[in-house]
Structure formats: structure tokens, C-alpha cells
């Protein structure tokens, strides 16, 4: 199951809507092994295409160096489909290379750049095998910076 806070969920959907009809992509990083998507990072789709996405190679290196330095990993890798359903394509499956990540797919085919809900689904993709999982949207991740507890 993917547990994600509302603000990050909204940020992913809003990025997908903004970049429609091109595919949008990005990462939500979190502490290694925590399974907590905490740090939202929009990436540029270097392919600039309605049918393909790819992180720019220099941006990719910077991203991984930054995550390494902070003991983070990509907890969520997201991208949008702009004319098809939010299900991993054959290419998505073939190229998925983060076995520990939640692959989030957002489809903007219904409302495009306009207001309105977008299909938001999450998958594990390991060795070419896709497993859809439940998405639980919470107000804030417990123990994360945006969730302060008082005694």
C-alpha cells in the first residue's frame, strides 16, 4: 500500500495537469528504508512528449547525488498518461528500474489542464511484473515535518 499525504498527492496531480498534454514526471524521495514519501521533486520531461517521458540525464545524476547525500531513496516515481488510463504501459514496465519504489500513474485524459479529478493509481513493478496497490491519502505523514505532535 502507498501511504501519501494530501499535499504531495495534490502536487503530483497539479503537475500532471499543468504539463498536459505532455507527460509529467517526478519523484517523491524519503529516508532510505522508511517507505515514506516526504520530499516532492518535480522533474523536467526531457522528451517533452505526450507519449513518452525521460528524466534529463544531468538532472538524474544531480537527483541521485542529492538523495545519496541525504540517505534518501526514490519512494515514489510518478508520471502521467495524457490520453490513456493510469496503468503502466509495456514501455513503463520494461524500463522500471527501482524495485523498491511505488510507481504512481496519473491520467489526465478526462479533464486535461482543467479542474476536476484525475485518476491516481500506484503499482509495484518488479522484474516485469506489475502489482497494483491501494493508495491511502492521509492529512500528513505522522512524524514528518508537516505533522507536529503536541503533548
Amino acid at each position: 500500500m502507498l501511504t501519501i499525504d494530501q499535499a504531495t498527492y495534490d502536487a503530483i496531480v497539479s503537475h500532471a495537469k499543468r504539463d498536459h498534454p505532455d507527460e509529467a514526471c517526478g519523484v517523491v524521495a524519503g529516508p532510505e528504508g522508511s517507505d515514506r514519501p516526504e520530499r516532492f521533486i518535480e522533474m523536467v520531461n526531457a522528451a517533452g512528449s505526450p507519449t513518452f517521458y525521460e528524466f534529463d540525464s544531468t538532472d538524474l545524476l544531480h537527483l541521485y547525488r542529492e538523495m545519496d547525500a541525504q540517505d534518501e531513496e526514490p519512494v515514489v516515481v510518478y508520471h502521467s498518461h495524457t490520453a490513456t488510463e493510469a496503468y503502466p504501459s509495456r514501455t513503463d514496465i520494461g524500463l522500471a528500474s527501482e524495485p523498491n519504489a511505488h510507481y504512481v500513474l496519473v491520467s489526465t485524459r478526462e479533464h486535461g489542464n482543467s479542474e476536476g479529478s484525475a485518476e491516481f493509481r500506484s503499482y509495484r513493478i518488479v522484474d516485469g511484473e506489475v502489482t497494483e496497490e491501494e493508495v491511502s491519502v492521509v492529512p500528513g505523514l505522522i512524524g514528518s515535518p508537516q505533522h507536529t505532535e503536541h503533548n
Binding site: T51, Y53, E54, F55, L60, L61, H79, T91, D92, S97
Partner: peptide
Amino acid sequence: VVVLPAVAGGC
């Protein structure tokens, strides 16, 4: 040397 798989896909 750093090796990184591309983060890419397409519908």
C-alpha cells in the same frame, strides 16, 4: 564512475 538506469517510460 556512476551508473544510473534512465527513469523513463511512455504510454
